[in-house]
């Protein structure tokens, strides 16, 4: 089936769709702000913003899994830890950091494949348990390989050499680069054929095979992508924290990541950002009181599920709804 001749009477917008660039001004402005931030903020605050960016990245990874293909994949904390440790270990052994990062990215995709291949055929909730266990298992392997990883005793991270540049600032730009890179990647995917395919898998899984789409295949892709993204985020995280301990990647991290995902808004790119800001804010504000942190996280999870399922990202839509309704009502009154 090939048509080389142009077909008459097809409207322009069909053959040449306008790529909508509505919100691009806001995005450019935000990017500009982010770029000049180091001039205005001190070292510690730059570190905090970098942390937010890293968490945004890992939440994006979760969103690929949960938001797009609707799978409850809870192994993300394990991949995060895998990325952190593996990259640092390779770096220590003499690999350039970027090379280590790429290797680990690919390796995580492979592990994601191992995790995902059987998992994609599992009924939703069993998938959650299986992936949760798998993530924990990764962590356990890390702990047990204490020859490599230092096990429970901790692992000092070989620091990236930025030449003469200020370390905090250089790391910050690295984070920014990673985030912008992934947002572009994600945006590309969502708009086109792959995005439609993923949405089909998410929304009409039953009907997908009738158009030749294999849900397990795409779910598997999501698994692998999600694992890689989380691992890369973990690698940067390691550089930020400069010291690794398996306790950092336990279930409490997973729950924190869930808070970011849910409170921010599942399936929303900006939601990942909002969720990360929320979590880091709470952690800083209630630094001394782990208990209060937990209450806030626990309650906000429950509240979000109950009252605000779309998370913070849906607030924008809700406000827009309200204002347009109000406008309608006032117009109606005038007509009377």
């Amino acid at each position: 089936m090939s048509t080389a001749e142009p077909i008459a009477d097809i409207p322009r917008w069909v053959s040449h769709p306008r790529r909508t660039r509505r919100a691009s001004l806001t995005r450019l402005a935000l990017l500009a702000v982010m770029l000049v931030l180091p001039w205005y903020l001190g070292g510690y605050y730059i570190y905090i913003v970098s942390l937010v960016l890293v968490y945004t990245l890992s939440t994006l990874g979760m969103n690929v899994m949960v938001g797009w293909t609707g799978q409850i994949g809870l192994a993300v904390a394990g991949f995060f830890g895998l990325g952190a440790y593996a990259t640092s270990i390779l770096h220590e052994r003499g690999f350039p950091w970027i090379v280590a990062l790429l290797v680990v990215g690919v390796f995580s995709a492979v592990i994601g494949f191992v995790d995902g291949y059987p998992a994609v055929r599992l009924f939703g909730f069993f998938l959650a348990i299986a992936s949760l266990a798998f993530g924990d298992l990764i962590l356990r392997v890390i702990i047990e390989s204490d020859g490599l990883t230092g096990g429970g005793g901790g692992y000092p991270v070989q620091l990236l050499d930025f030449g003469g540049l200020d370390r905090e600032i250089a790391l910050y730009y690295l984070c920014l680069l990673a985030i912008v890179g992934f947002m572009v990647f994600v945006g590309r995917v969502l708009d086109g054929r792959l995005g439609r395919t993923m949405r089909a898998v998410n929304n009409i899984e039953i009907a997908a095979p009738s158009v030749g789409i294999s849900p397990p295949k795409y779910k598997l892709i999501a698994f692998m992508t999600s694992g890689s993204i989380a691992a890369i985020a973990g690698a940067i995280f390691a550089q930020l924290l400069t010291y690794l301990n398996p306790d950092m990647f336990k279930t409490s991290l997973l729950i924190t990541m869930l808070v970011m995902l849910i409170v921010g808004g599942v399936g929303s790119i900006w939601g990942s950002f909002a969720g990360a800001i929320f979590v880091v804010f709470v952690q800083e504000w209630l630094q001394a009181f782990a208990v209060y942190q937990r209450i806030v996280f626990g309650v906000s999870l429950m509240l979000c599920i109950g009252l605000l399922p779309g998370g913070l990202a849906s607030l924008g839509d809700k406000v827009r709804e309200r204002t347009s309704k109000r406008r309608e009502r006032s117009v109606g009154a005038e007509q009377i």
Partner: peptide, 13 residues
């Protein structure tokens, strides 16, 4: 199923 769909069986629900 997805191979059958790709092979030439179209369907509605």
């Amino acid at each position: 199923a997805h191979e059958i769909g790709a092979f030439g069986v179209g369907r509605t629900f």
